[in-house]
Design a protein around this nucleic acid. Structure first.
Lengths: 304, 304
DNA sequence: TTCATTTATGCTCAAAAAAGATAAATATAG
DNA sequence: CTATATTTATCTTTTTTGAGCATAAATGAA
């Protein structure tokens, strides 16, 4: 079988004449005749009831006609879809994100992106920075939102700085420090420190520790919870203190008190992608550049 | 584009090797290479990420692969459907039928036929014998069930005798003749006759009239209703008498009394079809011959 | 019956596709 | 790091397929 045969068949069925179909297809009548005969031979049935004066589809011809049109449409669809995928206008975009840092802006951003390219199926995965790095290496996400990640080797991963999230002291609301308007790091020395686990968020951990070192303080580390919500529960239920990104206030924070620090201490929020991004990732990056200014979307340092 | 290109593409995608695909398709590797290149050129995208050691589908390739398989399946489906239609195993069978004569056996027959060939969509049309003749001429039914029809010209229409339906006298239940066990035609002379309209059922009309003529009776025709139900209502509500096929007792017959005649007077039930039946009609006729004995299905002369 | 029109078919030739040979590239083994 | 084996790309030759042309056969209409 052959697409040319199908096209010829459809044309003959439409104009009910071999010779008219020939001129419409810019060929000669004998070619049409042979195409139809070849099709009929292959199918083992006759598609047209014809003599030298009349051409009409048989019942089988009618059925085959409907199928033939659908098949050609399907071919066009296949071509179109493949091209859209290549252009990054159709497909899947997998985004890893740090829940505490992104939950407040990601939904609105993704909704606007979906309006821009409705045929990209955005799948989001809550992941720590370390998990995102691993996911990039094994190719299971296209875009990541997290604190800076420790990509040891060559330029596999690219990034863009989005915002600086100021770090706050957090204590329970009956804690002696809860009354202060701003806190100094030295205020914390009497208390044991709850510190977010390093393997979950190395950047935050290192920022905090190096700040203490700069002030020549050796904090007493009490515990290292692996989720921000667990950290807040720990703080709320004990006299320990903690240092957390301001965006954490978007979580459930009953009985916790956030106090600004007297020094500028920030943890950055970044967007990451690979050096050879997928087509959908390219579409995302292009959209981010021209349509959206993500920095404006992440006002995490505005006091609440 | 070309089906051969699609098949090559699918094979290469399956075994992820140009040369292996070549041997599987009983050709040489250079042919495969050119098929893929031709496809890629036409689509304007690359379907495989490949070098001399590795072949893998691109994202667009994955999408096109899924479409390509579906397209080839669709082609098979088209071929198959067309062949089934040609064999009369798929399609529409249009049956015209005389309601009063067929309503009691047609449903069960059609159910059994549907089990035999589930893909034939049987459409039934209630029609008088005259309407069936017209429908045959214009090709709008394939099979007809009716009394004998008056096909004036050549062998366009074929028929098969199914059963003889004995004709009964019908009177209302308080009529003087209602008490009799059998009736003679001469018993009817005092009464006016309600006669089913000739243009609705010429065969029945002529049978009745010629019976009267043989007995040298000239009946007083009172009215000529165009439906059996109307005839029964007329009989039930007046002192007129009527002669009707026994199967009419399957209709709503309140206050009517059916009395056998003392002479053998029948109206035949026949199946009709055209000299060049459609494929589905052939299937029907074949099924009737070998599977069903329609005569046994039409026990219209058994007294109720 | 004749004529005009339409499909089917045999023949020739050109275009396209397959086969064959070879080059280029690259992963693996030594 | 180099050599080798394997795989894809490309160029040339050969074979096959399909288009164009001429013509025969068929058929409905005048």
């Amino acid at each position: 079988m052959n697409f040319k045969h199908l096209k010829t068949f459809i044309e003959v069925a439409n104009c009910k004449s071999f010779s008219v179909a020939a001129t419409r297809l810019h060929t000669v009548q004998s070619a049409i005749s042979r195409h139809i005969n070849a099709l009929e031979e292959e199918l083992g049935i006759s598609l047209f009831e014809r003599n030298t004066r009349h051409v009409a589809l048989t019942a089988s011809g009618e059925v085959y006609f409907a199928h033939a049109k659908a098949i050609l449409n399907h071919c066009e669809q296949a071509k179109n879809d493949a091209q859209l995928v290549a252009q990054g206008k159709l497909g899947v975009l997998r985004i890893g994100y740090l829940s505490s840092a992104c939950a407040h802006f990601l939904p609105s951003v993704l909704r606007r992106f979906n309006e821009f390219v409705p045929n990209i199926d955005v799948k989001i995965f809550e992941m720590t920075a370390a998990q995102q790095l691993h996911a990039f290496v094994e190719g299971s996400i296209d875009i990541g939102f997290s604190r800076p990640i420790d990509y040891g080797y060559d330029g596999l991963i690219r990034h863009k700085h989005l915002s600086n999230d100021p770090i706050y002291l957090v204590v329970n609301d009956s804690h002696p420090l809860a009354q202060k308007n701003t806190a100094r790091l030295t205020d914390l020395t009497p208390y044991s420190l709850t510190l977010f686990a390093r393997d979950q968020a190395s950047s935050l951990f290192d920022t905090i520790i190096s700040a203490f070192h700069q002030h020549e303080i050796r904090p007493k580390v009490h515990s290292e919870p692996i989720s921000m919500q667990a950290l807040l529960t720990q703080v709320a239920s004990s006299q320990t203190v903690a240092l957390v990104p301001g965006c954490v206030r978007n979580l459930q924070t009953k009985q916790c008190c956030f106090i600004p620090l007297d020094i500028p201490l920030f943890t950055p929020l970044e967007m990451h992608w690979t050096a050879s991004p997928s087509a959908t990732a390219k579409t995302w990056l292009h959209w981010c550049e021209q349509d959206i200014n993500l920095e404006k979307e992440t006002p995490s340092h505005s006091p609440s």
